[in-house]
Amino acid sequence: MENDQAHGKLELNLAQRSQRRSHWSIAWSRFKRHRLAMVGLGMISVFTFLALFAPLIAPYGMDEQDLFKIAEGPSAENWLGTDELGRDVLSRLIYGGRISLAVGLGAALITTVVGVVVGTTAGYFGGWVDSILMRFIDLVLAFPAIFMLLILFSIVSASVWNVILFLGLFSWMWLARVVRGELLSLKEREFVEAARSIGASNVRIVSQHLLPNVVAAIIVSATLAMAFNMIAEATLSFLGFGVPPSVPTWGNMLTGASSFYLRAPLLAVMPGVVLVLAILAINFIGDGLRDAFDPQSR
C-alpha cells in the first residue's frame, strides 16, 4: 500500500481497493497451493455438511434409545456401535458435530468482535486509553481462563449459549494484542494522515483504512480461536461443567460413556478422533491462511 500517497480520498480508495482485490486473489491462489490447507478445507466442509444435514444423514435419531443394546460394538445396524443408552454412536457423532462446531464458531465470533474492538481502540487511540486497556488485558490474562470458566460454570448453569458467551469472553485477549500492535504501526503511515487531513472521522479511518490491513491477521487468529474454543468446550464438558449432558457434543459423549470405557473402549476413542480431526482441519486452514497472507512467515 505504500504507493498510495495523499492524492485525495477518491484515488486513495480506488487504489487501495484494487490492490486489496489483487491481494485477496493472490492470497487465494497461494492458499490453493497449500496442500494441507486444502485438505483441511475439504475435511471441514464434510463436517459442516454432516452437521447441517444431520437429521437427513444420521441413520438414527439423536435420542433414540434402546436399553437392550447398551454399549455394544460395531454391527451392521450400528456401524460404530451403541453408547451407554443404546443410542447409535455414529448418529450421535454426526449430531454432536453441530454443537461442537457451533460452539467453536460462535465463541470465535465473540472472540473476534471483542478482540478487534478492544485492540483497535487501544491501538488507534494509543496513550492512556492504550495503557489502561493493555493493563486490563494483563489482568485478565493473569487469571487462567480454564479456572475462571470452571468456577463460573459451578455457579451459573451452563447452557449452550452460556458456554459460547463465556468461552468467547475469556479468549479475546491475544487477538486484541495482535490487532493493537498492527494498528500502532499502521496509524503512523501516510495514508492515515492523509485521510485525517481531509477530515475523515475516526470510525471511517479505522473501518476504511486501518482494519482492511489487519484482516489477514484477524482471520488467522479467528481460525485458531475456533480450534481453541472447540477444545475448551470439550474439556469443560469432559470435566462436567460444560453444555448440559443431554446435549450431544463430542465432549459430552466422552463423559457420558466414561463408566463404559473398560467394556467398550471405542466409546472413548471415537468422539476424540473426530474432535482431533476437526481441530486438525481448522489448524491446517489457519496455517494455510497465514502462509497465504504472509509468505515470509514460514
Partner: peptide
C-alpha cells in the same frame, strides 16, 4: 506437531 496441537490434553 500439528497433531500435538490438535489433541485435547484430557483425551
Amino acid at each position: 506437531s500439528f497433531f500435538g496441537m490438535a489433541m485435547p490434553v484430557f483425551w
